[in-house]
Amino acid sequence: MNSNMNQEVIQKQAATYVARLYSGELSAEEEMQIYAWCDRSPEHQQEFDTMLAIWDTSNQLFQTAQPKKKKKNTYWFTGIAASLVCSVLAIWYLANPAPAPLYQASIPKPNIYHTAVGELSTVGLPDGSVVTLNTDSAIRIDFTGQQRRVWLERGEAFFDVAKDENRIFSINTGEKTIRVIGTKFNVRKSDATLKVSVTEGLVAIQSSSIPSREPIDFEDAETLLPAGSVGAFNGTSEVITHVTSKEVLANQQWRQGIFRFNNEPLGNVITEFNRYRLKKITLQNRALGKLKISGVFKLKDGDSILSALEAALPVEIDRYPEYIELSARN
């Protein structure tokens, strides 16, 4: 009974959060609360993903019902939306007692995991650790009774590492090797830089050319990143910043399948969205890239940003077979 009641509470909270997310009134503080709640347990993340899927399959029932006087009616709207989501959830569960994951990963071999462009996947590793892969990402693993080794071949991944003091967990990214015992952190690898954001615990980073020591000697590590820090590395330098937990979670918002931009240059927004698209968006000139935009967008609905851009900015969209171009509106 208690277990069922607890599950119902989690479902209602997830429904409320999804409704708030698309209410048009979500504050930055509330958004960080959602990320923190999802990160608190796998059950929270699973229910949130399920609610997002239900929102999609119910033809976005609530987006067309937003009241004009937002501030006065926001919480009334959120309550109704959350109740409707829960109702749809009950029907959906009866028809689908064992729902499929929102995203599926391709697993060509037992020790290789990868995602396609626009795909997200959460996979469990043999030691109990959990890895969430972002778009167009790949990892290779080698786990034995003495070691836990991972190679980040490309892309971005969030690691929730199960603690095992007898087996160091290492991630080779090419030039750098990340070593932990048990912690939570995000790693993003690009052609030019490596970015590591630590949510929980302590992360040791060193050059891959330096032999690893067992156990970890944190005092001798080249770079130490505690919780609440972000490290950016390239071939010749590194930049370490210490930020709030909200900022660290903001760097991982892709795990919820959404992006939120606050007065962000259009060029940066397009660059980020193109990571999830096969048909890329281009700008006719650099001046367009300086325009600013704010909003919440779903990764699954890649063209939603195009509608938002047309409505919010002085741009027009031209669609071609191989790409989409934004130009200044005449």
Results as ranks from 00 to 15, higher is better:
His44Met: 05
Thr64His: 14
Ala105Cys: 11
Pro42Glu: 02
Val243His: 05
Gly155Tyr: 04
Phe159Asn: 03
Thr193Phe: 04
Asn263Gly: 10
Ser83Tyr: 09
Ser304Arg: 09
Leu266Tyr: 08
Cys38Tyr: 04
Leu26Pro: 02
Pro108Ile: 12
His114Val: 01
Pro101Tyr: 00
Ala312Lys: 14
Phe48Cys: 04
Asn2Cys: 06
Thr132Arg: 02
Gly145His: 05
Asn263Phe: 02
Phe158Cys: 05
Phe48Ile: 08
Lys279Met: 10
Gln60Tyr: 12
Asp217Val: 08
Leu291Glu: 11
Val243Cys: 12
Ala53Tyr: 08
Ile91Thr: 14
Asn2Met: 10
Asn2Ala: 12
Glu8Asn: 13
Ile305Val: 11
Asp220Arg: 13
Ser307Met: 09
Glu264Met: 12
Tyr113Lys: 06
Val117Thr: 14
Leu326Gly: 07
Thr16Ser: 13
Phe158Lys: 02
Ala82Thr: 10
Arg40Glu: 14
Asn234Ser: 11
Lys71Val: 10
Gly118Tyr: 01
Ile270Ser: 03
Pro126Met: 08
Gln66Cys: 08
Ala36Arg: 15
Asp136Arg: 10
Val117Glu: 03
Gly257Gln: 00
Lys184Ser: 14
Asn6Ile: 13
Leu52His: 02
Ser170Gly: 00
Ile141Thr: 13
Gly145Ile: 01
Ala81Pro: 06
Ser237His: 15
Ile54Asp: 03
Tyr320Cys: 08
Leu26Cys: 03
Phe158Glu: 06
Thr57Trp: 12
Asn172Met: 04
Ala116Asp: 09
Val243Ser: 09
Gln33Ile: 04
Ser304Ile: 03
Ile91Leu: 14
Ser121Val: 01
